[in-house]
Design a protein around this nucleic acid. Structure first.
Lengths: 149, 149
DNA sequence: GTCATATAGTTGCAAAGTGCAAATATAACC
DNA sequence: GGTTATATTTGCACTTTGCAACTATATGAC
């Protein structure tokens, strides 16, 4: 029987490689870190810088600069929060939304191909399992617990 | 119903954060990249530099330097392959083996805690699902297919 | 043999990414 | 009004990265 960590290590490595391979949209090449930013900004509703940085486990100063470069590429927008002027909320530009959506599409296409090698029952089981696992990770008191999502 | 990619994205993100948190063994702090190297060298039998770099999806020049720094830390050993003198095979030193084993232990401890939030049946299902998913990824013709393991 | 070509690995260099400490700006509490 | 806390940015030094070019060895054609 394989080691438990091994199973997850291999899976996440492969998924990470996939993520890396999906960083090219049209003429626009972005880094893996930038892809993660776009993903997280896309799935939330106007999150603050702090929130996203913490969720991704990135130092806030590094994050600040990553946002700057994505703004230069016109993929991300920063808006001052009127209720607390220390805070900036993040959102995607039209182009940023397009890039994020395209990446999401590519990833889902690939995942669908992977699922095509399983029976429908297996597919359902796998999806449910990942959900169960994510829920359990969320309950854990140890390192990764506070991360939302 | 949640997006398929979302499920995997969240899971791998959390697992990645866990990996990052498990990079400290005794007085020895290593980077996440170094942890991945140790892991992969540990689970293979005297792999060559090329093999490991390709498996991890790292540029060979970057990899070469990572190996150099792990050698300086006395965690990894490079041995000239007598049958092909262009090739160097990698292995862990006693201390490297200790670090890799300790990290593995920490990761498995954490995973066991996560599994404690599930029933035994759910746990079995999740483990089997990850195995099924890894097998299916291995069958895929797309990006991550050639990666061994 | 030896010449051309392929492969394994290293190094130079310039660019990008990183985190800590310190700064700015605003909020919140008393 | 003054102290303390929070959100974000910048300075700086260090590390990491990948491409191009290099060395060294192997392999195949002839």
């Amino acid at each position: 029987m394989e080691n438990t960590r091994e199973l997850f290590q291999i899976m996440t490595r492969r998924f990470g490689l996939l993520n890396k391979n999906c960083c090219s949209v049209g003429g626009c090449d972005i880094s893996l870190a930038q892809s993660h930013l776009l993903y997280e900004i896309d799935r939330r509703h106007n999150p603050s810088m702090q929130q996203v940085a913490e969720t991704l486990g990135i130092d806030i100063t590094t994050f600040s600069r990553q946002v700057q470069s994505l703004m230069k590429m016109d993929l991300v927008k920063k808006t001052a929060d009127p209720s607390d002027r220390r805070v900036f909320t993040l959102s995607l530009t039209v182009q940023g939304k397009f890039v994020a959506t395209t990446i999401d599409q590519q990833m889902n296409d690939y995942l669908n191909e992977v699922f095509s090698y399983m029976s429908e029952f297996e597919k359902e089981t796998v999806l449910r399992s990942v959900q169960i696992f994510n829920d359990a990770m969320g309950k854990s008191s140890r390192c990764c617990a506070p991360i939302t999502g």
